[in-house]
Amino acid sequence: MPAIDNNNALIIKDLHVSVEGREILKGVDLEIPKGEVHALMGPNGAGKSTLAYALLGRPGYEVTGGEAIFHGKNLLELPVDERAREGVFLAFQYPQEIPGLKVFHFLRSAYLAYKGLKVEEFSPMKFMNLLNEKLELLKMKEDFISRYLNEGFSGGEKKRMEILQMAVLEPEIAILDEPDSGLDIDAVRIVANGVNSLRGPERGILVITHYQRLLNYIKPDFVHILMDGKITKSGGPELAEELEETGYEVVEGIG
């Protein structure tokens, strides 16, 4: 097998992250190649969301060691928006509400920024066509786009809005932070279908989840267990099923 090159994979090496002076990640190693879906599982407080936030550079998440290489650059040294423009996307567990910001305007601005296009290079009409394609792909209604970003959205709507953003921006690496949390089973299915429609050789996906349930709908190629700031075990999809039966403690014991 050829060595994974960092143009085609996000390579995280020995990542240490502290929040408010407390070390949460204690040396994480992980590789997400394009074309693969990886699941990151672990109990509450293990540091799953911390990994996602640190990769994108959320204020307050202090990297104390390690690197995250993509396209030959250490993402951890770049401002937040530049990391995004390298092609790394985070679907938030708790998306922010931005009152007064219309979804259409937001998506178009993000698209232009993400793709490095000037306003005059991509007319609103052209963007509307692109957006309609994506809405259709995700089976979402058009009325989404005239609403204010996430304001008054239900939990399920917020999660779908995140997937729509991913569909529009077409990132190379997508990190989905608990896209199933707070959703009933029908909503989980809708979100999972959306994610599945965005799988492909041009994209690596890291799905963070607490429950195996989601992985019935988004079938991962690999599963990693994060416990107390470290990846304690990696394996194929069967690892998630094993976990479902035995729980995290036992898995740790055998790992």
Partner: peptide
């Protein structure tokens, strides 16, 4: 942070929030 993770620069992100307000 949320807006910037979409590739939007800090000044533009702040403008969007203010204009929305």
């Amino acid at each position: 942070f949320y807006l910037m993770t979409r590739g939007i620069g800090e000044i533009d992100a702040a403008k969007m929030i203010v204009n929305g307000f």
